[in-house]
């Protein structure tokens, strides 16, 4: 074979391999699904499982949040879809919300999920067109989750019990 062909092919393969390794170091995928999904999304070929997403949405509206998260995780196994991650974060918010106190562990997971959703959204802006939600943007949800995790004097206000879940 011609030397130039070997050298050109070697250079191309090496650069591709080095790029893939660099991407692995930056994105730190934990599962094979995340690796394949991440590579697919790099070339714009990633799609969520629509059926599983619809199942998740149905569970979410019935307030079955654990079931909803399981379905959303199945729908977006590579964790590359901003909208699905938004719903996962919202499910943590609703499940963790309490009239007297919030569940900090669930709120922290919700915050991690909404941060992921914001990172995945183009330009970091994510607005979900869903009339059942009172917070339709990732920024609002993030703010609510952060406020829930912050300890402040207003937490001891007894009138707090009259607030409503969003």
């Amino acid at each position: 074979m011609n030397d130039s062909v070997v050298r050109g092919a070697g250079l191309g393969v090496s650069l591709l391999y080095a790029t893939a390794i660099g991407w692995l170091y930056v994105s730190q995928p934990q599962t094979v699904a995340q690796v394949t999904g991440g590579l697919a999304s790099m070339v714009g070929a990633y799609e969520i499982d629509r059926q599983a997403f619809d199942d998740g949405l149905r569970f979410f509206r019935r307030e079955q949040y654990s079931e909803a998260r399981a379905a959303f995780a199945r729908a977006d196994s590579a964790e590359r879809d901003a909208r699905t991650q938004f719903y996962i974060a919202y499910s943590y918010y609703r499940e963790g919300w309490g009239r007297v106190y919030n569940d900090d562990a669930l709120f922290a997971r919700g915050l991690a999920a909404v941060d992921k959703a914001i990172a995945l959204a183009p330009g970091g802006r994510l607005v979900v067109d869903d009339v059942d939600l009172q917070m339709r943007s990732a920024d609002e949800l993030r703010g609510e989750l952060q406020r829930g995790l912050t300890r402040e004097a207003a937490d001891f206000n007894p009138l707090k019990v009259f607030r409503s879940r969003k």
């Binding site: 050298r7 092919a9 070697g10």
Partner: peptide, 26 residues
């Protein structure tokens, strides 16, 4: 050319990948 362009880069990049892997719970 095969050794220089294909074998050595692939071996060394594989080492860079494997040696950086820290296997714990994840």
């Amino acid at each position: 050319p095969g050794r220089e362009a294909i074998v050595l880069p692939l071996l060394l990049l594989t080492v860079a990948l494997l040696a950086g892997a820290d296997i714990g719970t994840s």
